[in-house]
């Protein structure tokens, strides 16, 4: 059971996202994260889906996705050299005083940004791979993480390879 990152190019039409997610729930595949948005081509969106499963399941995910009429291209990016990132926002309890400066220090170490300061909260923005986000979350937990939101993983292959070129 390993995590795979699928980069899926789809027609930019209403309903395409529910076709994709419906397929996952119907066939019992587990989505760990999903990120979607327009991409470099017109009328096309890119969905990045992280799925865990054994080899047979992963093969089925790929084939079933390919069967959807509005899916243009499916690539398991984790099979090749790639870069991946995720962005998380965390609202941390940190009133004026010691806690606040400690949280700001931790953020600094992780190259995270403070993007909002409230009377007794800070919102921390952190970008990285899942390990990095988990690490900062662990460190901030003792202060009280009031809310956490993550974008889901996005990824690209390294070098000149692209999903539409199929490499």
């Amino acid at each position: 059971m390993t995590a795979h990152i699928f980069s899926v190019l789809v027609e930019d039409s209403p309903g395409v996202l529910s076709r994709v997610t419906g397929l996952f729930s119907r066939r019992g595949f587990n989505i760990e994260s999903l990120a979607v948005g327009h991409c470099e081509q017109p009328d096309t969106s890119r969905i990045t889906i992280v799925v865990t499963g054994n080899d047979v399941q992963i093969e089925q995910v790929k084939k079933q996705l390919n069967k959807l009429i509005e899916v243009i291209k499916v690539l398991d990016i984790s099979e090749s050299e790639h870069v991946e990132r995720e962005l998380a926002l965390m609202k941390v309890r940190a009133g004026p005083g010691e806690a606040r400066s400690e949280v700001m220090q931790i953020a600094g170490i992780f190259r995270a940004k403070i993007i909002d300061v409230g009377s007794d909260t800070l919102v921390v923005e952190v970008t990285g791979d899942s390990g990095k986000i988990a690490a900062i979350e662990d460190l901030l937990k003792p202060y009280g993480v009031l809310e956490l939101v993550r974008t889901g993983k996005i990824a690209l292959q390294r070098g000149s390879a692209t999903v539409s070129s199929g490499r």
């Binding site: 089925q60 084939k63 390919n66 069967k67």
Partner: peptide, 8 residues
């Protein structure tokens, strides 16, 4: 004709 049937 359906690749998804093969190995399912």
């Amino acid at each position: 004709i359906d690749p998804a049937e093969i190995g399912k």
